[in-house]
Nucleic acid binder design. Structure first.
Lengths: 129, 129
DNA sequence: CGGATAATTGACTTTTACGTAAATTAACGA
DNA sequence: TCGTTAATTTACGTAAAAGTCAATTATCCG
């Protein structure tokens, strides 16, 4: 496990452009360190990028991903109100995820039906000649 | 179960604007019938809208949703090549959905961890005064 | 039948999430 | 040291997915 990555290494690993990574930096989601002007990404930056891309695949907007990431890095210090509020947000996010999960299951079911129809159709064609 | 719905009924049921529904019509995803100039949505149109919005929640683009919908309405007629191709597309969509499912599970796990950290933190605070 | 209410159309605007291109600068190898 | 990569910055461009606004046109109800 390396201790820093260049931007191009990350673009290759994750299949995104440098522009995309810099965009996430502009948005304040990642804060790589610099050697001179050049960005150096620590393992933690890499993990963040992975989380961002995971959020994107699930259809979350940058704003929503920001919220999710905020939740991940629960401040180990913080007053009771803050923490209770954080727990609330976690619950909300969880129910969004549960909705998405239901959506996936529903879609999967319809895919299964569609495939079965296709297979039946193929069987018919296979027998008929 | 009604046999037609007006556009505003659907906007209320699904929490989307009329513009959104008309946009999906422009894109050819829904084809409501008309009474004069006014749109009338049949139950099948309503189901389509539901499927579109489900796709949206999962982060699929309109183009991708179009593909998914094409898959749903497997042509009951069609030659072998067509049908095999359809089965291929179903497999692809399914693996996209499986990826999303993994992404959800991973995110859920991290949410659980974050919540636990919060709860521990609350316990500490609860004991310390 | 007349006026409020609701739906449509068309055009322009906005937001998000980058793409792209040009100019600049740094780094590295022969 | 010099030239060739490679990375950065700045700024404008763009596609997708609607939002918004204005002008019409039905429609319905008292």
């Amino acid at each position: 496990m390396r201790d820093t990555y260049t931007i191009t290494e990350l673009t290759k690993e994750f299949g995104v452009s440098t522009r995309t990574i810099r965009f996430y930096e502009d948005e304040g989601l990642i804060k790589p360190i610099r050697r001179g002007r050049t960005r150096l990404f620590r393992p933690s930056d890499r993990v963040l990028l992975k989380q961002i891309l995971r959020g994107k695949r699930l259809g979350f907007s940058i704003a929503e991903i920001r919220e999710i990431i905020e939740v991940y890095k629960t401040p180990s210090g913080g007053e009771e109100g803050q923490i209770s509020l954080m727990i609330e947000r976690i619950k909300e996010k969880r129910s969004e995820l549960e909705q998405k999960r239901r959506d996936i299951e529903d879609t999967m079911r319809e895919m299964d039906e569609a495939e079965e129809t296709c297979l039946e159709r193929l069987a018919e064609l296979g027998v008929s000649h």
